[in-house]
Design a protein around this nucleic acid. Structure first.
Lengths: 137, 137
DNA sequence: TCCACAGGTTGAAATAATTACAAGTTTGAA
DNA sequence: TTCAAACTTGTAATTATTTCAACCTGTGGA
């Protein structure tokens, strides 16, 4: 469980109690949670936690490349603690986000025209998941 | 200028005045506008246009696959009338969205596990554009 | 050990995007 | 021409996110 702390330090982030809790949460739950989900879940063990802190911390983690911020869902940002390259699929019925393998080296590489620096890449799929398809939702 | 009407009909959408205007706007402007940009620009020639209509119409167009809804920007949805496959880059300084060629056949194809139907794919890059890099913003 | 201060956290209030909804308008088929 | 269904409008509500000022905490220096 010291992993979260190490991860933060490695990315130049001071490991406060709240930051470690949030980082730990993202390392344990690969559910691509939103700010609100993280906030509510952590509230159980940290009753004084503020939603603002969750926003601040995720913004901090993201800007230091310690987590990924997924914009696959136009309703809210989802966060992902897994930094190895992979794609995402979101079901438009149940809203669930599923990890997908990223096809080899397809995306990155040649710096496109007008672009000086590519910092992030997201490959996002959406459609209907198996479960929702069976329940014809 | 009849193209917009045809495009709507082809996608099973009744071509009302407002819908044609919005579709036409997206076919002319490849700037990936937001709801608000479209609303304000069209207001000049359609003073009674309602923002709600713009929301409704874009949602309708998108659900009929007549336009793409880009979730590259967590702040607001951007729309794109160009339906041929291509990727997008957003500059984190100026917010501009630039079209990029989509590397061959890289993304789609094999239906991933747990996924029944893939309806949309987005390949999103972000970083810093040339201009912002020079102005060290 | 004690103090001061920078860095963090908190909660309330403000903002901005989006949705809900009820009422008015338009359109097209009978 | 009439009527219902489809569409549009504007206001109000909702929801996510940001702002901000006050409070807390941990650390290094006196």
């Amino acid at each position: 469980m010291e992993k979260a702390t190490q991860h933060l330090v490695k990315h130049g982030i001071r490991p406060s109690v709240q930051r470690v809790a949030i980082m730990e949460y993202l390392m344990k739950h690969h559910t691509h949670p939103t700010v609100d989900t993280i906030y509510h879940d952590l509230l159980a063990t940290m009753p004084t936690l503020s939603r603002t802190t969750v926003y601040n911390t995720l913004e901090l983690l993201h800007s230091h490349n310690a987590v990924q911020a997924l914009t696959i869902d136009s309703r809210n940002v989802h966060y992902d603690g897994m930094m190895s390259p992979h794609a995402h699929f979101m079901c438009r019925c149940c809203g669930r986000i599923i990890d997908l393998p990223m096809h080899s080296d397809l995306p990155a590489n040649p710096l496109p025209q007008h672009v000086s620096r590519v910092e992030q890449i997201q490959l996002n799929y959406s459609g209907v998941c198996d479960e929702c398809n069976e329940n014809n939702c």
